[in-house]
């Protein structure tokens, strides 16, 4: 009986192992991004806070009417974030040096190794070869882990919808524009050419070139070049990135690196535990007559005492 139980233990363990085994093979190392990935370089020194990008996004993505019209600058009184009604927002920040206050457009950064994608248990997110991180609402269960996993706090959720709540975020105008090689609506409309659309690799060169040519105008750093494993949207700024609301403490490792410790341990547990605990069972019960001791028999308790 013991042996049979042992084999059963191994079998069940093995079955469990086959469930969890794929985890590790997917937790692969640093991915530098697709070679042909597009991106946008945001030069915050050029942004005047006209909010036309917000308006263009609203129109392109067929979002509901905004609460405040797009030409109203009173919205700058507070810091806004992306919501289910606005995939991109512009915020105004304080200038410490007496110069004009800097503005920054905020939207999905389209990471090379997106946290939302790696955290999604139904694979609703895809990083396309064009660089966009798109979302498939047809499989989304609504666990909202992607929102927890996004280091930039971008995905929003339509909490008000009872029957079809979905994650709402910038998708780089993938279906209507990017797929056909066209720049997203916000880039096209920008009157200041603060947004530059192009191959991500070219944009990094362009950004460094601008810094080199006018070093007084910029902090020598392209935010998004390395942050979180690199993002498709890149930022140039006159002030340090944390002064325009960009988190500089997030580091250069993509989200998945933090999770790898755990994922790497999974196959080990699945492999070692069944054998280990079956072994312990055999040792612990080796002097007993009945391998399959029935619980709830008071006599055994007596034996033990």
């Amino acid at each position: 009986m013991k042996r049979r139980d042992f084999l059963k233990g191994c079998l069940i363990g093995g079955a469990a192992a086959s469930l969890g085994a794929p985890s590790k093979s997917w937790a692969v190392g640093s991915f530098e991004g697709y070679p042909d990935a597009m991106g946008v370089l945001v030069d915050t020194t050029r942004c005047i806070g006209c909010r036309s990008c917000e308006a263009a996004c609203n129109k392109e993505q067929k979002l509901p009417e905004p609460d405040v019209p797009f030409d109203d600058t009173s919205v700058f009184k507070e810091k806004r974030r992306t919501t289910e009604k606005a995939y991109t927002v512009v915020n105004r920040y304080e200038a410490n040096d007496g110069q004009k206050p800097p503005y920054r457009k905020m939207q999905c950064m389209h990471c090379n190794e997106p946290g939302c994608l790696t955290s999604c248990f139904v694979n609703a997110y895809t990083k396309t070869k064009e660089g966009a991180v798109i979302y498939n609402g047809n499989v989304c269960v609504g666990c909202k882990t992607c929102m927890v996993a996004c280091p930039f706090n971008i995905p929003a959720y339509s909490y008000s919808s009872a029957f079809d709540p979905l994650v709402k975020k910038c998708i780089f105008c993938y279906h209507t524009r990017l797929k056909f090689g066209k720049p997203p609506a916000c880039v096209e409309i920008c009157p200041q050419e603060a947004l530059t659309f192009g191959l991500r690799s070219d944009l990094i060169k362009l950004g460094h070139e601008r810094i080199r040519q006018t070093p007084d105008r910029y902090v020598d750093h392209i935010y998004g070049e390395k942050e979180m494993g690199g993002t498709s949207w890149l930022y140039l700024s006159r002030v340090p990135a944390d002064q325009i609301g960009l988190d500089t403490t997030i580091g250069n490792e993509p989200v998945i690196s933090n999770v790898k410790d755990f994922l790497g341990m999974v196959p080990m547990v699945l492999t070692i535990w069944p054998a280990l605990f079956s072994g312990i069972h055999l040792l612990a019960t080796r002097n007993k007559d009945h391998g399959d001791d029935h619980h709830n028999h008071s006599e055994q308790e007596g034996d033990k005492k």
Partner: peptide
């Protein structure tokens, strides 16, 4: 869950095996 009726999705419809939550669900 936003769409609780889709709870079985990670088991039958669409798999995200690299996700920790996938492991939790299973």
């Amino acid at each position: 869950l936003g769409q609780p009726w889709r709870l079985p999705f990670p088991m039958v419809v669409s798999f995200g095996p690299a996700a920790v939550l996938f492991l939790v669900a299973w």
